[in-house]
Design a protein around this nucleic acid. Structure first.
Lengths: 155, 155
DNA sequence: CGCCCGATTCACAAATTTGTGAATCTTCTG
DNA sequence: CAGAAGATTCACAAATTTGTGAATCGGGCG
């Protein structure tokens, strides 16, 4: 079956839209999905700009964002400033799911709210404590989940 | 220890800000956290408006959103149209984490992208398939995780 | 039945986000 | 070391998002 560029482009955009709906910034999402389906060796900034129909400036901002959060990395091309951008292959979804410290942060805020209420018998305090416990639980289990995935993937 | 309204309010806002950073709409996030720490029986719309310092219209939109995604429910007050809003107590974080069909959707899009590429030996197709597998894995494990939490919580 | 209080909706204004073009900077090539 | 191609940055413009005020709707009470 031949490569269906049109369907591929549509799917890239739809996937990016899902990420965007989940709070992911728009342009980084589009770049991310474009690179996901890219051929070996990644793409250059200008190739990305062409495929997505956006300016070089937009690409620059997006790849900076993505490399900061550890999803991409730049692959310098010897003897050229046309660097290519690539996935940190198996790292990106784990980064997306687990590396974020956000669960721990929310847990701490839950405890802080309960402290501010002061009375542990207060239902609000109880809910806040439970929120804290829940997110600590998630925070703790996430690494296990990722390990399980690794095993599944390799085995 | 007495209730520290000021610290509580600050924590509510900070927690809402974290949710917002994770892509959750701003006003619903604030309402959500305000109700989390509220006393038994929930709050009325106007109480919410007062505590958050926003208009009735903003509250109306936020509670509509939250009840649509199944985090709140309205508790009609017999003989009054001043309904109260409450948590669906233990359901809210599971709703936040698991009930969303988003993992399945992303998985499907990954497969569709691989199909559009057509050649399974293509590295882009391989990555798309792996994305699909990963999110299906998450989708499948999430209910288990929630069950584990329930047991931990009760036991 | 008619008044009143509160919730909801809608059009608009404010604020934030997003992407562009032009200028600037960097580094490879001759 | 000068020229050039590409990347990056910055100020601004367009587009979205967010929340308000005013008008509307609707149920409860006299």
């Amino acid at each position: 079956m031949p490569r269906d560029e049109q369907a591929l482009k549509a799917t890239v955009e739809q996937s990016a839209a899902v990420l965007t709906a989940a709070g992911f910034p728009r342009m980084p999402a589009r770049v991310l999905m474009a690179l996901l389906v890219a051929e070996a060796g990644g793409l250059t900034a200008s190739e990305l700009g062409d495929r997505l129909g956006v300016s070089a400036a937009a690409i620059s901002g997006a790849v900076r964002y993505l490399s900061q959060i550890g999803i991409l990395h730049r692959v310098p091309q010897p003897g050229s400033r046309r660097d290519r951008w690539e996935f940190l292959d198996d790292a990106w979804y784990t980064a997306l799911m687990a590396k974020s410290p956000v669960y721990g942060v929310i847990a701490d805020l839950g405890d802080r709210a309960a402290d501010a209420i002061g009375d542990e018998s207060d239902i609000g305090a109880a809910r806040a404590r439970e929120m804290a416990r829940f997110y600590r639980f998630i925070d703790a289990r996430m690494p296990d989940l990722m390990r399980e995935w690794e095993e599944l993937r390799e085995g």
